[in-house]
Design a protein around this nucleic acid. Structure first.
Lengths: 214, 214
DNA sequence: TAGATTGTTAATCGATTAACAATC
DNA sequence: TAGATTGTTAATCGATTAACAATC
């Protein structure tokens, strides 16, 4: 039986589908800038190296967006994807650990370009970090984490703290109500299963490449 | 019929297996520091959330490293994995585009910790970048790319240039003989298929998380 | 020897691709 | 209408997991 209400009964969508949706969304962004009005699943797939059936099936997870015999209206599909991905409103991000890597992430242009709002940075040595960074984003002492999050909601926490700190920081962030974590620290964290965690392990990427060049 | 020589007939290994191998290798590194002598596939898997059969099957792609009824000798398995991953020698890395993100990557401690050698950075404005970075790694003008690579071999090029530059930089790097690219720029590049390319798309990670918090 | 755990084959599961009726 | 392309079902492919004989 089909879901009777629009929101609550979302079926479980594979993570891989969500990633491809983001990719489609970007291509559509480019196409819109180029004033392209329509695109077929075959063309959209070709730009990313995907099969046309895969494009249609990914989209079919969320509804019917195309016109048989014609294709998809670029602007219409883009709107729909943005809404599906939750990008039709401001997504609020904080960064914890404004060291070497964190300094780059807090002012990373790619985040802003894709419409994320970097709210605050948190650091154990906030003065040094503030000097280093030169960005509009205010940097607070990590002790203020809970008090800042309280009140103003935060969607995603980006973690770039030392490995020794990661578990305790993750727990504090979760306790403060954050539901999604992007972790740049090469260590697994244990959080309740309703909290979404993604790992970006930079050295791991190099390692997997080094296999092919030996 | 089994391969008759040790090197040439490597069978095609899924990328996912190689990534897991790197993860195993790190766990073993930790265990060795803790003076743990042996580990079973079940314990190794548990640390990463993998099934024990998967651990054994991944390892089986490359040989028999375990002792039935006992498990794996930590130090022995680690040596084998390092050799498989090509980490039993210095892996030489260069970085192109020493801007905001590139500045962090060139001196990223995680790379050094995992035994990679960051050779040089290349930039269109090398003076500004050199001032910004404060690391031992010398930064050259991007015009010197070919002449520097010539002679001293480079295993992996990390790219963090502006999106408009990415395709031409990729082509130059490949022409200079580099066989593996780690691309932080959110744009697909076209290279000969023997060149290995991995994409790290930071905004994409946030996008896929934002789906879960809307 | 008895117990434990490997390496490997067979079964299961999920994701990708092909095919095609529906339809604009 | 004829042609093109969707949405969706069925077929294929590959990856994960279970099971177990081999063996330390």
């Amino acid at each position: 039986m089909p879901p009777t209400d629009g929101e609550a009964e979302r079926k479980i969508i594979p993570q891989a589908v969500i990633k491809r949706l983001s990719l489609y969304s970007r291509i559509l962004q480019d196409l819109e800038l180029e004033n392209v009005e329509k695109i077929s699943s075959a063309d959209l797939g070709r730009r990313l190296g995907f099969n046309s059936a895969q494009v249609r099936k990914d989209l079919a997870c969320f509804g019917q967006f195309g016109v048989p015999g014609f294709g998809y209206y670029v602007s219409d599909l883009r709107k729909n994807l943005r809404s599906i991905l939750g990008k039709d409103r401001t997504v609020r991000v904080i960064l914890i650990g404004v060291g070497n890597l964190g300094s780059a992430l807090i002012s990373y242009h790619g985040f802003t370009k894709q419409g994320f709002k970097m709210m605050w940075g948190f650091e154990a040595q906030p003065e040094a970090a503030t000097q280093r960074v030169r960005s509009e984003v205010p940097i607070y002492h990590v002790d203020e984490l809970e008090s800042k999050i309280q009140g103003e909601s935060v969607d995603i926490a980006v973690l770039a703290v030392p490995a020794t700190e990661i578990q305790s920081i993750a727990e504090r962030v979760v306790a403060a109500g954050v539901k999604a974590i992007l972790n740049f620290v090469p260590a697994r964290i244990e959080v309740p299963e309703e909290v979404q965690v993604r790992y970006v392990d930079l050295a791991l990427e190099l390692e997997s490449l080094s296999y092919y060049v030996r």
